[in-house]
Structure formats: C-alpha cells, structure tokens
Design a protein around this nucleic acid. Structure first.
Lengths: 339, 339
DNA sequence: CGGTCTTTTTGAATCGTTTCATCAAGGGAT
DNA sequence: ATCCCTTGATGAAACGATTCAAAAAGACCG
C-alpha cells in the first residue's frame, strides 16, 4: 500500500502501463471507454503521479528557482510576485531560495538546484564571487537570468535598474535641499547594488562639494540601520541627511533617530531605496528611490522563457530600467531646521 | 555532453558504477586510492548527481514544504526563518509555497507537493475546506504539521497560538481604555485565525457592553485595511478604536486614517496582531498582540522530525502558545481625546 | 472474403541512482 | 598448503514513469 504506481492502476483497469501513461499525457489518443475505466481506477486507488520518475525520464524538472538576497525584504517578494504568473501559466513551479546575503548559503542552494536539474534560474547574486558557480549552471544547460543586476560581461540575460543613477537621484535630492553633510548607510560593499548606489551618491557629492560619511553595515536590514545611526549619533560633526541603501535600512534608521529624539526631517532627513509599501506608511513617510519591482520579476521570467524557447541560437538580452525619485515627508524641507 | 552520469565517471575512473555510488555515499567503504581516482574523474567531468534518480530510488525527496498564507507578510517569513535551521541541519531542503489565502492556489501546491513526494509539510491552511486534501497527504505517508492553527479533531501535530485569547487581550485593552464603540477589521471570516480573534474580541465586548462593528475584508493585507477604513469613516456612529486581524491590515488602516486627518490614537486608537518588526516602526508605533513567530516555526519543524523519526507509533502533539499584549503609542490613552 | 487504412493498445527499452548478494584478493593462523 | 576473515569491488535488479516501434483490432471498399 506504500505507494500505488502506474502498474497498479494498469492492473486494476485491465490495461497496460503505456495506456495509463497515455490517459494522463495524451488523453485524446486513447478510446473514450478505456479512458473512463483508467480514470476510475486512478480515483479508486488514489493514485498520484511520481514526479521524480517523470523528471528522471524527462531529464529536466519544471521548477524555476528564484534565489533572492532576503525573503523578508518586501522588495524581493514583490519581484517574485511579478515573476510567478508567467512561470505558472507556462506550467512551471516556482521555488524561492533565500541566500540571506550569505555566499555560502547561496552556494548550497545552487548545488542543490543543479542536482535538481531545475528548468531555469532567476538570481540576484550576493556578489561577484558567485560568478563562476552561476557560470557552471548555465554551462550545464540551465538558463540563468540575473535579477536586479547587470550582466556586465557575463554571458547571461539580465534585468536591472540603473543603481548608479538611483544613487545620483537620491543624493541630488538631498544636495538640492541644502544639506552639506550627508551620510550613506549600507553594506557590505561587496554587494553590487550597494556599491553602485554609493558610487552615484559619491559622484554627486563630489561635484557639489558636499561632505559624505559612509557607514558600512554588515547587512541590509532593520537592525543594520539602527546600529549605523547609533554610531552616527556619537559623531561630533553629525550629518543632516541620510541616504540608506534600501528601505529596510532606512526604516531602522528612522526608528533609531526617533527613539533618540532626533526630529525627522527637521534635524535629519532620510531617504531610502526600493519604495516598498511600508515606506509610505512609516513613522514619517519615507522618501525613496522607486524600482519597478513587479516588472523586474515579470521581465526576468519573460527573458528566461525566451531563452528556453529559443534553444540554440539565443542572444542574451540585458534590460535596464530607470529608477524614480519619490519625495515624501522624510526629506521635506519646507519645515526649516530649528536653529 | 548533455549530462554526464555515473556511468561516465565510472568509465573514466576505470571502476564500476557501484563504486562511484559508494564514493559519494559511503566513502569510508572504498579504498583510499580508488576514492581519489573517482573524485578526480568527477572533478574532471564536472559530474553532478541527479537528484530525480536518487529520489526515485529513495521513494522520498528531502524537501520540506512550508505552505503559508502570504509570503509578503513578515509574520510568515519569520515563521519560516524559525523553521529553517532545524530542517537544514537535518539535511532537508526548505521550499516555501504561497497560497495567497486562495484555496485553489493552495490546492495546486498540495497536488504538486504530493507528486514530489515531499518529506514533510508545514502548513497554515487557508480554511477548513483544505482538511480533506491535507488528510490525503498524510494518508499517503507524508507527515503534516499545522502551523498557527490548532489541529482540532484532525489527526495531525500542530503548533498554534491561542487566538481567542489574543482577541480577548486586544479587546480588553481597548475596553479598559474606555472605548465604547470598537471596530474589528479583518477577513475573510473563513480563515480560522480571523474567526478566533473576532470571537475573543466579541466575547469581551459583550461582557463589557461595548458596541462592536465588524468590517469584513477580502484579505489580510495593506489594501484591505485602507479600504475598510474608508468605509468606516463614512459611518455616522464612528468607532473610537479599531482592532485589526493582523498588523498589515492595521498598518493599512493607520495610513488611511492619517491620510484623512484622523489623529491616532486621540481620535481613533488602533491595535494590530502579530507584532511584526514594522509595527514598532510605524507612523504611530503600533500596539499589537505578539505571537512567538520564530518559535512557532522552530517547534513546527521539531514536531515534524519527531514524527518522521518515530515512524510507526507516533502520537500527535498539539502545542499551544500564549500571545502577549504589546502596548505602544497607537492605543496610548494618556492623551485625552479632544472634545 | 481479402486487402488496405486507421485507430488503439501493447511491451520493452530507457532515464541515473542505490542497494545488495557475490566475487576476488590478500592476510594471517594453523 | 589450506582454510577462514576482512576489505574492496562488481554487476544486476529495482525505483516509476515516458516513448516508440510494432502488433492488434476495427472500419471500409471492392
């Protein structure tokens, strides 16, 4: 009784296993009456297809894996939500893997996914050290699309947002508001998104002659933002505005500032990145640099299936979206800083 | 070149496939020198185990599936985070499935998971209509642990929080603060958590003679909270306090109230449920009923592996945690309502 | 009734591992 | 030299589905 297989169904229905298989996969090829009999037997026995066997035969699974930096970050769940519909209508199954910004966890996932012979991979790599591993997968005929990250000279499709430009937007916004000392909070610097956003920010600051203090964090979450602010508040020459590498960090920073009685935006302005839904609902509605989250996911899935369909002669495409500045209360300058 | 199999490795190393298998699974049983030769061949050829074949042979996969109501809800990501370490140290692989509070999606996931012969299932069912499906899985030897939901008379292990009591805590808190008309926002009512929280709330209100308006929503998210408030604000006899079925709804409600110029908590108090990290960082720090999120996950995983280990004579356990009231500014009554 | 098509069904081969009963090769001990 | 043990390696039999050439069964025509 352990598990009933096709053989059992075949016996019960008085047909061969080949016929049972046909009923399941090409029902039009089997006679009405036989089909009914087989289906009845299936119901009777509570038969359930064994996916491992199917996959073994097929050589590929129908799973599309999405490897993200942090599932708890709404940015990524929105990206996944964007990708899901397309994958599912194509008959695929989505599995989400969380690397937690940890290269070792990421690698473990990649190993497993390769063993599973996944249909395709959407990944936001932790940093450049993953490149060779990813290369390996695509070398083994598993199409890979980089998400939220340009392909650079890597041979993959990619969807990304121009993060350098995003960094510029944020910095320009703060500089225009008259801030003369800005803090950047985010890290680790090995994460390309962080590096790019900082680069754009730095570019604008240098051009405008604005001082820039960089607080490097160990991760991109709530706690990181809080800790960085603790550190910042100890400083003598305190910045009057903070640009955080993402909204989670910004929300943590905001919370910490508020707790220490620092008024936002009057005494310290904050701007985040991603524009997740929580940004608008924060203690002080958070200014942010918006990324087209769902569209990133949707496009990534699209590119993946294009690559799968085109088989041989496929030319990789690299789609880049432009971010958009969303100004809210956390950087509102109509309220003059108290002096 | 398509895929290199054990056979290829065996040939390259001049041994039999059985030996290659042993190198991978019981390395101590193969001679030093042979092992080295095989490993070299594996590296040479870039051989990767085929998980489908392994599973087919083993009859089970090593995947533990977690089916949640909403991956974008930090409550659930925290539960998953709590469960992961234990599963992974046990050699398992975690896959998260999002039912999106939709019975059809949930069922699709269950079908696929059954075909995949997953090792076990942690699930927060959408509603009671899933019972028979879940029964089916455990009838097919797939252990199931219900999460955030008592097993009732169902034959499963479960970890849950006493939601009726949680509802009481929230309502009592509001009643004690002197509110005489309370709104409950949440839905659909078919979700057991919603029903329980409302039941507890109703119990307290009736006892205290407090009026209770129920606003039933279609889901438990941001938008639901916003819409319910729109509706509520149109009412003549407007409640002075709102109990939301979870924090996402509460944050939506808070945002909408603020947008309409209603002061929280002076003109309308709000309390949520779950105490996700964002609650404390909200526009007005949100009072909430805290659930031990990570512990729910950890315990669920524990129960699952207990059940797997105990094989035959296993008696199901039903663990119930008590929720805890966390009072913050959104229900602070030291500020008298303006009149 | 034989012959030609078409529609259904069959059965065996195959996918890549794991497992296990055998077999081979040494190494003592007698 | 013989026999018994231990240690390693082998090869074939599963696991459960899919696929495809070939057989069987009808249908139709002359």
């Amino acid at each position: 009784m352990a598990t009933t297989s096709m053989k059992d169904v075949a016996r019960a229905a008085g047909v061969s296993v080949g016929t049972v298989s046909n009923v399941l996969n090409r029902p039009e090829a089997v006679a009405e009456e036989t089909r009914a009999r087989v289906l009845a037997a299936i119901g009777e026995l509570g038969y359930v297809r064994n996916d491992s066997a199917r996959q073994l035969r097929a050589g590929r699974s129908r799973t599309v894996a999405v490897v993200v930096l942090d599932v708890a970050n709404p940015f990524f769940t929105d990206v996944v939500r964007g990708a899901e519909p397309l994958i599912e209508t194509a008959g695929g199954v989505v599995t989400v893997c969380d690397s937690g910004e940890d290269v070792r966890r990421e690698r473990r996932h990649l190993e497993i996914l390769e063993e599973q012979r996944v249909l395709g991979l959407l990944i936001t790599p932790v940093d450049d050290s993953s490149a060779s591993w990813i290369e390996r997968l695509s070398g083994h005929d598993i199409p890979v699309v980089l998400v939220d990250r340009g392909a650079g000279r890597h041979p993959h499709c990619s969807v990304a947002v121009d993060d350098v430009h995003g960094g510029r937007l944020a910095a320009r916004h703060l500089v225009d508001a008259g801030h003369e000392r800005i803090a950047f909070i985010g890290g680790p610097g090995s994460i390309p998104q962080v590096a790019d956003r900082l680069a754009g920010c730095r570019e604008v600051c240098e051009e405008a002659g604005t001082a820039l203090d960089v607080f490097t964090t160990a991760g991109l979450n709530f706690a990181a933002g809080r800790e960085a602010v603790e550190q910042m508040l100890g400083r003598a020459d305190r910045p009057t505005a903070v640009f955080c590498a993402n909204d989670l960090v910004a929300l943590g920073a905001l919370q910490s500032l508020t707790m220490h009685g620092v008024k936002v935006p009057q005494e310290c302005a904050i701007i985040g990145y991603d524009d997740i839904d929580f940004a608008a609902a924060a203690a002080v509605p958070l200014s942010s640099v918006r990324q087209p989250r769902a569209q990133l996911g949707r496009t990534a899935a699209q590119l993946l299936f294009d690559e799968i369909a085109e088989e041989g002669g496929h030319t990789h495409r690299n789609v880049v979206f432009q971010p958009e500045l969303i100004a809210r209360a956390s950087t509102a300058m109509d309220l003059e800083p108290p002096l």
